[in-house]
Design a protein around this nucleic acid. Structure first.
Lengths: 103, 103
DNA sequence: GCAGACCGTGATACAAATACCGGTATAAGA
DNA sequence: TCTTATACCGGTATTTGTATCACGGTCTGC
């Protein structure tokens, strides 16, 4: 079904709410690592408070245990961390994945 | 808890998984309208296929019935629609919202 | 030792996202 | 008219996000 360049990564579509693929979970780990790196020395509690999300949610995202967070949650965190959403998405998808560049 | 400027919009935090606020739902409608406008004449099926999401998901997002979609779903759609995630988020949160800065 | 921040994990709970199905409606085309 | 394509809607199913609580670990300072 052609996942597409930035594709969400779905390949099976027989069931409702397909479970996340290993690739999506790895992407979530890389994504969380980027956020953690951008947080630097600041504490989770502070950044989470500024963004308006719970510290546990930020922790899950950073550790990759919430691999597909909501757009507005990430937008709030990106603003709190002074990050670009476009660069964030690009940095998370582009690195060494040259297989989905067909469409 | 200070939702912050780009705040996710949460104000009550007594229960687990607080229901979406009316403000979040309105934001979802504005967000969906932006995507629909950007889609132009292209069909839902085509754009959804390029992005790698189902047409139903795209329709729900556009109609605002899925007000808080996942980050990577939006990233895929933004790429398919040639949109900037930063501009998308800014256009959705900034316009005339001076009320979410208090609580 | 003790208290207080952080960070981490696990369990729990509820709401929402995603996807499939069927049905409906409309408009364009053969 | 019949068919096709598109979009909307309702229902259903499963997975996931978000948030709370509880507990344990690691520091630092009192």
């Amino acid at each position: 079904m052609a996942p597409g360049p930035y594709g969400a990564g779905r390949s099976i579509d027989l069931m409702a709410r397909t479970p996340l693929t290993p690739w999506e979970r790895e992407r979530g780990e890389r994504f969380g690592a980027l956020l953690r790196e951008a947080r630097g020395e600041r504490s989770m509690v502070e950044v989470a408070a500024v963004a308006g999300v719970s510290a546990e949610t930020l922790r899950k995202i950073e550790t990759g245990r919430a691999p597909t967070p909501s757009f507005f949650t990430i937008a709030a965190l990106a603003f709190a961390l002074d990050l670009s959403l476009d660069e964030l998405a690009a940095a998370c998808v582009l690195p060494e994945d040259g297989e989905a560049l067909s469409a």
